[in-house]
């Protein structure tokens, strides 16, 4: 029953997103969509996925899109051409995908291949082989460590892409001007600044809890990284970008992002050197279970570092671009008024 309600709400929101022209409302609806799918995942007992969806889909991606909207403007441009060919391609792809699902086993059917070999193995043996209570973490970080490595590299590549496209060289004068703007802004946002100051330490603490508690409950590097980054982004939004840049050096954050991926890969290389397969943690220590624990701890740490710093880098570059644009506009205005 609750599944049907949630799914129909998802459909309603998806249609609303398509039909809206106000991009700000669309971003808010995307956030609601993320939160609803998170509750849907909770209803399906997939708490880890729900946590990730709530942190990434409802939290940080909404935030990043809002930053982008402040640069691009909030109204959608009216399309003059009728995108019939695009509709055709989408219909064709969708039809093919639906046709592809016909061969798949029914949802939840007991004789699907995944329920015959894979799931029983994970459920029965993961406690002996990996030795941590949360099966999702042991699948994600140990059995499927190679896939997770790929995901981390994807996130890292996204960060590099944003850096190459949006990196702005900043002059010192520019900084001072932003500083003066920020100083005046500080007197205006008193309440939220104080409350945020109280909350930010707790957010950091919660991120660390999620990071290191991932073995026992829902959590892990991805969620922890996003939460960590969101605390820094909150600080940057309230206290101004240049203030945040003074606290958190962007070059340092970029190095951390690379170090996270390096740490993950090095764990794999070390296990290769010790005579195991790539990312086979059993050989990291004399006791296989202890080796698994060490390996999972290290790669989760790498994932957390990379995710947090890539998010911070993306936000800094988006927001820095915006400040750069504003500055350019002001300069142009001054020139035109002088003329």
């Amino acid at each position: 029953m609750i599944d049907i309600v949630l799914l129909s709400l998802l459909v309603v929101i998806a249609i609303a997103i398509i039909r809206m022209k106000d991009l700000f409302a669309v971003v808010m609806l995307t956030g609601i969509y993320g939160l609803l799918s998170a509750s849907f995942f909770v209803a399906m007992d997939a708490v880890d996925v729900a946590f990730t969806e709530a942190a990434v889909g409802a939290g940080i991606s909404t935030l990043l899109m809002l930053v982008v909207i402040t640069m691009t403007g909030r109204k959608e441009k009216s399309t003059r051409h009728k995108p019939l060919s695009a509709l055709f391609v989408v219909m064709l792809t969708g039809g093919l995908l639906i046709y592809g699902t016909l061969d798949m086993p029914y949802f939840g059917s007991a004789d699907a291949p995944i329920h015959k070999h894979t799931s029983p193995r994970y459920i029965n043996d993961s406690m002996e082989e990996i030795g941590i209570p949360n099966i999702v973490t042991s699948v994600l970080a140990s059995y499927r460590a190679f896939d997770t490595f790929g995901e981390v590299v994807v996130i890292f590549t996204a960060g590099i892409g944003v850096l190459t496209l949006l990196c702005v060289a900043r002059s010192q004068k520019n900084d001072e001007e932003i500083d003066s703007i920020n100083d005046s802004m500080h007197q205006q946002h008193l309440v939220i600044r104080i409350v945020a100051k109280m909350l930010i330490p707790f957010i950091f603490l919660f991120a660390l809890y999620v990071q290191f508690h991932g073995d026992f409950g829902p959590g892990g590097g991805f969620q922890a990284g996003v939460i960590f980054a969101s605390a820094i982004i909150l600080y940057a939004m309230l206290f101004g970008l240049s203030t945040a840049r003074k606290v958190i050096n962007q070059t340092f954050v970029q190095v951390i992002a690379a170090l996270g991926v390096l740490l993950y890969g090095s764990v794999g290389i070390v296990s290769l050197m010790n005579g195991g397969n790539f990312l086979d943690y059993n050989v990291l220590s004399s006791n296989p279970i202890a080796g698994q624990h060490l390996g999972i701890l290290l790669i989760e740490w790498g994932v957390g570092c990379t995710v947090a710093s890539v998010m911070v880098v993306i936000f800094f570059n988006f927001a820095g671009r915006r400040a750069f644009q504003q500055h350019k506009k002001q300069a142009q205005d001054k020139e035109s008024s002088a003329c």
């Binding site: 946002h189 309440v191 939220i192 409350v195 109280m198 909350l199 707790f202």
Partner: peptide, 13 residues
């Protein structure tokens, strides 16, 4: 505690 802290703040903002 967190709802009591955050709710009024968000309303204010």
């Amino acid at each position: 505690l967190f709802t009591l802290l955050i709710g009024p703040t968000t309303s204010h903002v």
